[in-house]
Design a binder for these strands. Structure first.
Lengths: 243, 243
DNA sequence: CGATCAGTTGAGAATGGTCAAATTCGGTGG
DNA sequence: CCACCGAATTTGACCATTCTCAACTGATCG
């Protein structure tokens, strides 16, 4: 019916088959277009009454700051991702979100979500599923930080990003474009920027993966997957669950 | 109306005001009582078609195993907690859940959830909120692992557990009963069991907190909070958001 | 009364951090 | 086109947190 569906529609449709009415309700999520410049803080930790967004172009990252000024990045958001869903369910946002690149997004008001749930229960299930999928990724990051070496962490992270980008047509098993700095990598992997640099050099010298000038190139995809013990199960990419 | 409400009802009611109809639908979650012995694996990673549970008594833990046999515990579940929600939304469970103590729980079938969403949209919002709250805790653990020292991690973890147990009447600012071993602590904090032991000793010698024989005693609650930079915002304990 | 499991302690090794100083790179203004 | 600037990256030297291995204690249980 729709040849040109939005990234969000495409994503939710992989979980539940949405009716035309559902699609209509979902289309209301896409009315308020917003643009942001790199570095702009879209959602601030502690802020109340914030909106959510659906990302259509560009990269963002969600993070928390510690009192001593250190930063832990929780996840990156790429086109098609929901952003700040927790911020509208909680009274105050428990994390910040910042634009990494120039961003195009649609603003979703709390009332949009609550309305949608009343009109379209199947949509509620789909949104819950999307939220669960995000949580699954956070859980995988947790395992990454808790039980893997710096090198395994890096390999796993670059592979995960590749898998996610491939799902939305922005990457393949050769590699992908990546606007992140080594500081971003340090803050998401719980390492120092210096060590990130050394790990990247080692992976490059081993002929596994090259991270350079905004590009990630998988030099040996299979061996990298083995090193990281990477298993895509948690990304749950299969077809619709509900008829 | 209900003097003796279930832990789950009490929890969801703090987020949305539930109608009698909602409460009736929710009561259907509480029909299939199950008991489990310590060590029983209630949900197995990779398992398909699993159920979820609502915990009424005892402790459980959700975890992932790595190929090399290492374990990362993602979270502990205490009475009132939902357990395995992701397992029913995903086709295959992406994590395992094990009983830490003897457990009493109610089994929730996937159809219960989906029915509930159709009948009671407000309930859907409440469940989404509960899921988001769980995710907020996982995110806090992530920050813990990525950016805090072993000692801060331990302090933060023991405080969080205390705050959660206090919410359901199983602890106060003096301390609480805790059935975990030092191996559990090691696996949740991403440390070795040996180092956990040393950290506990140091915290005890500093007069901050005592972990011993199944009891956690806060010897100096205020100083412990300072050390951990503990902020309860992410537990979002305030009253109902929706009228 | 062994057996087993949780906890405890010490010694040495390793992974990753800190500090400090180059070097490269992509602009930007002259 | 070139000099220059700031940000990102790279490298070395040294340090500290945490791990590993190994041994030992103490409690609990059949």
């Amino acid at each position: 019916m729709l040849n040109e569906s939005s990234p969000l529609t495409r994503k939710l449709s992989t979980f539940v088959a949405l009716s035309d009415a559902d699609l209509g309700t979902l289309a209301r999520f896409d009315r308020r277009r917003r643009n942001f410049l790199p570095g702009h803080e879209m959602i601030h930790e502690g802020q109340t009454g914030s909106s959510a967004f659906v990302l259509s172009k560009g990269w963002a990252c969600s993070y928390k700051l510690l009192p001593d000024g250190e930063r832990q990045i929780v996840d990156f958001q790429i086109p098609g991702d929901f952003l700040g869903l927790r911020s509208i369910l909680f009274r105050t946002s428990d994390h910040s979100i910042e634009a990494v690149t120039r961003i195009e997004a649609s603003e979703v008001l709390p009332s949009d979500i609550l309305d949608a749930f009343t009109r379209a229960p199947r949509l509620a299930t789909a949104v819950l599923w999307a939220a669960s999928r995000d949580e699954a990724m956070v859980v995988e990051h947790l395992v990454n930080l808790g039980r893997r070496s710096a090198e395994e962490r890096m390999a796993h992270f670059l592979l995960e990003l590749g898998a996610r980008l491939t799902l939305v047509g922005l990457g393949d098993r050769k590699g992908y474009d990546c606007p992140l700095t080594q500081y971003h990598l340090a803050d998401v992997l719980g390492l120092s920027a210096v060590h990130v640099n050394r790990v990247l050099r080692h992976l490059r010298e081993e002929g596994l993966v090259t991270f350079r000038q905004g590009h990630v190139i998988f030099d040996d995809f299979a061996r990298l997957k083995t090193l990281a013990a990477f298993d895509t199960a948690y990304l749950d990419q299969e077809g619709p669950l509900l008829p």
